[in-house]
Computed example of a mutant assay.
Amino acid sequence: MRIKYKDKKDTFLEKHLVSREPFGQFKAWFEEACGRKEILEPNAMCLATSSKEGYPSARFVLLKGYGKEGYKFFTNYGSRKAREMNENPKVAATFYWEVLNRSVRIEGHVEKLSKEESTRYFHTRPVPSQIAACASFQSTPIESRDILCEREKVLEADYLIPGKEVPKPDYWGGYIIRPRAVEFWQGQRDRLHDRIKFRKPKEGEVPDGKLLHQGDDGWVFERLSP
């Protein structure tokens, strides 16, 4: 099963970088993905975590903010991902935009967002989504969907009232991924894919301008073999 990627003339070269640090480059690619109607959820990213014993797990979450400080998302603090991030804050995340033949890979560590920021975001969500967050004890076993529907019905009776605010549950909130490496991948028809990786330099590492290039804001970047 093979599909055609970009043509050889559509390569992703160092001269095509719009920024010499990863956040500006991500912004350019992300905004292009957002402008393509075929990409229904350009902010969907696969988040990979690992338990303290080293067992990995991955699932899709939605990016809800980004900038030079990192990449933000929200979840239930009792979920498997949250428990694993509490045990081991090192994570990876991947975006894949098939229509553009592009992917972005992020490696770093997570930190919890403040309660205030989590609360602000919680109340920007549609009320049914707020109620759903209150009704679900994510990743815990449940006897049937009927249990969830009953919890939802009780909460709707309490909070589907004009002017009444759904309180953010203490077990729900946000995280930020603070990256140490961000790789930009663009697929090519001949399978000689383009990979440019930004990373924090190792102690004593000096860019030579050939294999390793000096970026901005303390970043270096390099081209990787496909």
Score class of each variant (00 low, 15 high):
residue 1 M to Q: 14
residue 1 M to V: 15
residue 2 R to H: 12
residue 2 R to V: 15
residue 5 Y to W: 08
residue 5 Y to I: 09
residue 6 K to W: 09
residue 9 K to G: 08
residue 11 T to H: 10
residue 13 L to F: 06
residue 13 L to T: 15
residue 15 K to I: 11
residue 15 K to S: 10
residue 17 L to F: 03
residue 19 S to H: 07
residue 28 A to L: 11
residue 28 A to T: 14
residue 31 E to F: 01
residue 33 A to F: 02
residue 37 K to H: 09
residue 42 P to Y: 05
residue 42 P to F: 04
residue 43 N to P: 05
residue 44 A to H: 05
residue 44 A to G: 09
residue 51 S to C: 10
residue 53 E to P: 13
residue 53 E to A: 15
residue 54 G to C: 04
residue 54 G to K: 01
residue 66 Y to N: 00
residue 68 K to G: 07
residue 69 E to C: 01
residue 71 Y to T: 06
residue 72 K to N: 08
residue 80 R to A: 03
residue 81 K to E: 03
residue 81 K to G: 01
residue 82 A to V: 12
residue 96 Y to I: 12
residue 97 W to K: 00
residue 98 E to Q: 07
residue 98 E to I: 07
residue 99 V to N: 00
residue 100 L to Q: 01
residue 108 G to D: 13
residue 109 H to D: 14
residue 114 S to V: 14
residue 114 S to Y: 10
residue 117 E to H: 01
residue 119 T to Y: 10
residue 122 F to V: 13
residue 122 F to W: 07
residue 123 H to A: 13
residue 124 T to E: 08
residue 125 R to C: 14
residue 128 P to I: 04
residue 131 I to S: 07
residue 131 I to A: 10
residue 132 A to N: 06
residue 133 A to V: 08
residue 134 C to Y: 05
residue 135 A to I: 08
residue 137 F to M: 11
residue 139 S to T: 05
residue 142 I to T: 12
residue 144 S to F: 11
residue 146 D to M: 12
residue 146 D to N: 12
residue 150 E to W: 04
residue 151 R to M: 02
residue 154 V to Y: 04
residue 154 V to T: 12
residue 157 A to P: 09
residue 160 L to Q: 02
residue 161 I to D: 00
residue 161 I to R: 00
residue 166 V to C: 00
residue 167 P to Y: 00
residue 167 P to N: 00
residue 174 G to A: 10
residue 175 Y to L: 06
residue 178 R to N: 07
residue 180 R to D: 14
residue 184 F to R: 00
residue 189 R to Q: 13
residue 193 H to V: 09
residue 194 D to Y: 03
residue 196 I to C: 03
residue 198 F to H: 06
residue 210 K to H: 11
residue 215 G to M: 04
residue 216 D to K: 10
residue 216 D to S: 14
residue 216 D to P: 11
residue 217 D to N: 15
residue 218 G to Y: 03
residue 218 G to N: 04
residue 220 V to M: 01
residue 221 F to K: 01
residue 221 F to V: 09
residue 223 R to S: 07
residue 224 L to G: 13
